[in-house]
Each structure stands twice: as structure tokens, then as C-alpha cells.
Nucleic acid binder design. Structure first.
Lengths: 133, 133
DNA sequence: ATAGAAATAATAATAATTACTATTTATATT
DNA sequence: AATATAAATAGTAATTATTATTATTTCTAT
């Protein structure tokens, strides 16, 4: 059996994620922890991020364009993506379990989860962009 | 101003998409229309698929792993993704506009849409896989 | 028939991520 | 404390998915 062995790099990656409220990419995390471990490699960051996702300690966000992002906030919530600048914002919304139930009624397989991302224009871009069509 | 010019390849790509009920990747479409146009290039397929998406004639599906998929079914509906085999299934569900309204209440920007994908195990895999954990 | 704009095929380049491998490190056992 | 061993790492290469470049071809309006 394969047992999990402590690694400073993994701790640092997790601490980095827990310490920030944005939703960094693997590369963002890499650049951040390189200050503490200058020899860390990007592969290590990817491997540990994916491991943390498997362990359920971190969430991976894939919303259709750009690289995946990571989020250590385990409080259930949704995300808003600005189509203009790409910023991600947390939406402190309670989950919608009724979606799964509704979808289950027209699905032959078994649904156990869903992912939802909201899109639009963030406050900042609304003031910058004179008009959007 | 740039005007849209007819192209046989684009028609073929659109016809291919409209003719199938699965959700092909760009490469799937490429392999398919290569039977009609053996010299078509993958870049042409990507360019036209993206163009058709811009024109609103086709939908792009990005659900978190694997390549993007394309869907010419414009009837509003959702999608189910089997985590086991990756199959996509249509869910003939009416859209949930109330999600946008609910999310809007805790969002500083303006929400205009959302994307939702359901995940689980398809019927086929449920019978093949003895147990899933 | 022709001119000009748009689309194409072929290829190269890029972005994001995973795979490989020799070396290092954590940890259980002596 | 020394050692064995399994896991993790750094560094690099490879892969996957997609976009960019460019010379040539193909539409279409005149």
C-alpha cells in the first residue's frame, strides 16, 4: 500500500492556498512558494495540487478558459467569472442540491454532483468599459 | 468591415455537428469531415468551430477535463458527464434562470449567464464497475 | 474576366499539464 | 544513531489542446 509521506513543499503549497482569497493557478502557487523554496519545480506544484484535490482539501476550478485555478475554501460556495478581465469572485451562495434531484429525473446514470459557474461583467469592468454588447 | 464568406468546409463542419447526437471534439469533427475533404486542416476546423460559436449556431462545452466539445443542439439543455468513462449525455432539463437571480443577489458585478455540468456515473459504467468509492 | 477580401492548408508556435528518472528525503526498524 | 525502503523531489522531456503565421486558393462583387 502507498502511504502518504510528509513534504515541506506540500505544506507550503497548502499554506499558500489557505492564505489567499484569490483563486491562484498552479503557476501562481509556484511563483509564490518559490520565495520559500527556490528550487521547487512546477511539476511538484501540480502533483501536490492534484493530490490535495484528491484528498478533498482543495478544490479545482475549471471554468472553460485559461488554466485551472485552485481554492482551499471548503465552505460550499459558487464562483463568478468576469468575461472581460477573467477575475474570479466568490459567491457566498448555499449549494443547490435540488439541481441534482431535478437532473436525476431525466438522467439514466447516477448524478452525485454538479459544477456551476456564473459569468458576466465584474464591477470594476462595468465602470471601465463604456458599453458592452 | 469584414464580411463572412461562404466556405464548403464550414458548411461541412456544421452539417457534421448537426448530424450527430454525441458531443464531438474538434478532432472528432476533423476526422469526420476528412472523409469528404481529405485536405482539410485541423486549424480550419478549430477556426470554424469557434466562428460558429461566436455566431451562436453552436455551443462549446468545457466541463473540466479533456478537450472541449461541441454541440449544435440549440434547444436549451444541460449535460451529464460520466466521471468513469467521460461520456456526455444530454439532460432535457429546462434552464434555471432563478440561479442567475439568486447569484446576482450576492454578486457585485452583473451576471448574464451560467454554465452547469452534472457529474456521476453513467448507466453503462454502473453495470460494469462492481463498486465505486 | 478580374480585383480584392476572406478562407484555406500546412506548418510552427504556444499554453497547460503530465510523465520520466536519477537523486533526495522522510520515516519505520534495527 | 545507523540503515533500509518507500515516497517525494528537481529537472527535464514529452504530450495534449489550441492558436498563430503565411503563402496560396477560393469566393464574390464589380
Amino acid at each position: 500500500m502507498k502511504t502518504l509521506k510528509y513534504s515541506r513543499q506540500r505544506e507550503s503549497i497548502k499554506a499558500c492556498l489557505m492564505g489567499r482569497r484569490d483563486h491562484p493557478t498552479a503557476d501562481d502557487v509556484y511563483l509564490s512558494i518559490r520565495q520559500e523554496y527556490p528550487n521547487v519545480s512546477l511539476g511538484t506544484v501540480y502533483r501536490n495540487l492534484n493530490l490535495l484535490v484528491e484528498l478533498g482539501e482543495v478544490q479545482k476550478l475549471s471554468f472553460g478558459y485559461g488554466p485551472d485555478r485552485f481554492d482551499a475554501d471548503l465552505m460550499p460556495h459558487y464562483h463568478f467569472v468576469c468575461r472581460n478581465c477573467g477575475t474570479i469572485a466568490d459567491l457566498p451562495l448555499k449549494p443547490f442540491p435540488e439541481l441534482n434531484r431535478e437532473a436525476q429525473q431525466c438522467c439514466e446514470g447516477r448524478i452525485d454532483s454538479h459544477s456551476t459557474y456564473f459569468y458576466g461583467m465584474c464591477r470594476n469592468c462595468m465602470f471601465q468599459e463604456p458599453s458592452q454588447d
